[in-house]
């Protein structure tokens, strides 16, 4: 299978505290096309920092990041903006949606910025909202949606533009158990159907077992990297 993301000796050191913090400490990993990966670890273990680095939102202090073979950590800011728009889907823990746009407009937003044809956009947005079970909420504004529904819209948006991969930083952290499982189900389903690489972080034991691959971070280092464990055991 094709490698989508590859990091070599990736490092992010924060110098602004009393002692330098190695938030990401020498991580070398590869993510293949279509993988459904969970990054787990306690709070402060470097999950967010790692996702921000491979998402091109933050600059590493050492090492390299290759997306489809392209080194992104040396890109200029304007190139990175464009790179993110074309290649990466994001789901954040909170504040995912543009408050003044409806669910459907939010899902179309990336495609709109990519200047996709209108008809395609319409069709895809409706289809994606259907996929996440929100076909009755097309014209609802974010403040008319529950937390779980908002996260589903965010997932629909991240996948609608068919990016190379989707990064979800603790997408279930603010959700109750039922909504969390529901969101995971949807992510898992879409990952399979669309064959889009999906990496999500969590410190929630309940959702870990849904992942095909589980990478555990401790103090910015990879302490475990299990492939296909629990799913095959069931």
């Amino acid at each position: 299978m094709k490698t989508v993301i590859k990091t070599t000796n990736l490092q992010k050191i924060y110098n602004n505290s009393v002692a330098p913090v190695k938030a990401v400490n020498d991580i070398s990993l590869e993510f293949k096309e279509g993988e459904f990966t969970a990054i787990v670890g306690p709070s402060g273990s470097g999950k967010t920092t790692f996702l921000n680095l491979i998402g091109g939102l933050d600059k590493p202090t050492g090492g390299e990041i290759f997306i489809d073979g392209t080194e992104i950590s040396t890109m200029k800011e304007s190139e990175l903006f464009d790179f993110r728009l074309r290649n990466i889907g994001f789901v954040f823990q909170s504040y995912n949606l543009i408050p003044v746009l409806t669910a459907k407009e939010n899902v179309s937003f990336i495609m709109l910025l990519q200047k996709r044809p209108k008809a395609e956009m319409e069709k895809r947005a409706t289809e994606m909202l259907e996929q996440v079970g929100l076909s009755d909420k097309l014209n609802s504004r974010p403040n008319q949606l529950s937390g779980g529904q908002q996260q589903r819209v965010a997932v629909a948006r991240a996948l609608a533009s068919k990016p190379k991969f989707v990064l979800a930083d603790e997408p279930t952290a603010n959700l109750d158990t039922e909504s969390a499982f529901n969101l995971l189900d949807i992510m898992e389903k879409l990952n399979k159907e669309e064959n889009i690489t999906l990496i999500f972080s969590t410190h929630d034991q309940r959702v870990i077992e849904r992942a095909g691959r589980v990478i555990t971070l401790v103090d910015g280092r990879v302490s475990e990297d299990e492939v296909g464990s629990s799913r095959f055991e069931v």
Binding site: G55, F81, Y95, I98, I110
Partner: peptide
């Protein structure tokens, strides 16, 4: 919101 828009790739 600006951070979100920038993350998504809005110039």
């Amino acid at each position: 919101e600006f951070a979100l828009l920038f993350s998504l790739g809005m110039k």
